[in-house]
Design a protein around this nucleic acid. Structure first.
Lengths: 121, 121
DNA sequence: CCGCATCCCTATTGATACTG
DNA sequence: CAGTATCAATAGGGATGCGG
């Protein structure tokens, strides 16, 4: 890596720009956090809801449906009672892990910077 | 890298979760695309507006102001006529480049996957 | 002209209650 | 359990205007 990577950031941001394509998938509040949960494996709806403190059931369902339509997540329904559904990243969806990791590293830098400024007496 | 990186993706997504911290900064439509433009160097307001086809002046100004408040962008005003302002990433802001690159790589995978499915005759 | 600020409208998100 | 229905709040977006 690092050879052709410069070209990602050159020129205007056209419709075919890879960053724009990725942004269209990852946009929307909670989307990246939902993906973060799924990176560590298959999850049930209720597990996601509990892990993502503060998310509303509507948004969770909406985002999962969108990710499903875009081919990044698969949903499996087990016809039993009580009902049980599982969500899992597709191979294409697992490609988002790199993005999540990069975000995590940036988040750590943010935290370090924030603590440094708030620690001034 | 890769040693402690696993810990980024473990456990529930608490308020201190690095991915959540990053998401709070990068959230909002256009934000990542604005950062993408600034990664390649100092840019004027009008340059950003032209490069980001379709963005409204309000959103562009709002996003830049937010990034400024969060310490990721600095704004320089040149008191001349016609007016001229320049926007530049701070050292902390430049840490977002890794995220943008990861998104770009993911965007290429999306494109490849999309072409593969649409190419079925 | 450039770089926004303002007004106003639509779309997305969110809280809550309820159902198969 | 796994969502949907409903309604209120907030963010996004277009048009216009204005000071420098």
């Amino acid at each position: 890596m690092g050879l052709a990577s410069e070209t990602y950031l050159q020129g205007a941001c056209e419709a075919e720009c890879p960053v724009r394509r990725a942004a269209e998938v990852l946009e929307g509040k909670w989307t990246t956090l939902i993906v973060r949960e799924l990176v560590s494996g298959v999850k049930r709806y209720s597990e996601l809801q509990r892990a993502l403190a503060g998310i509303s059931p509507k948004i969770l369902a909406d985002r999962l449906a969108l990710l499903q339509v875009k081919g990044l997540v698969v949903k499996t329904i087990y016809p039993c009672v009580p009902p049980k559904t599982e969500y899992e990243l597709t191979p294409l969806g697992r490609e988002m892990e790199k993005v999540i990791r990069a975000m995590a590293e940036f988040g750590l830098m943010l935290q370090a910077a924030g603590e440094a400024t708030s620690a001034r007496p």
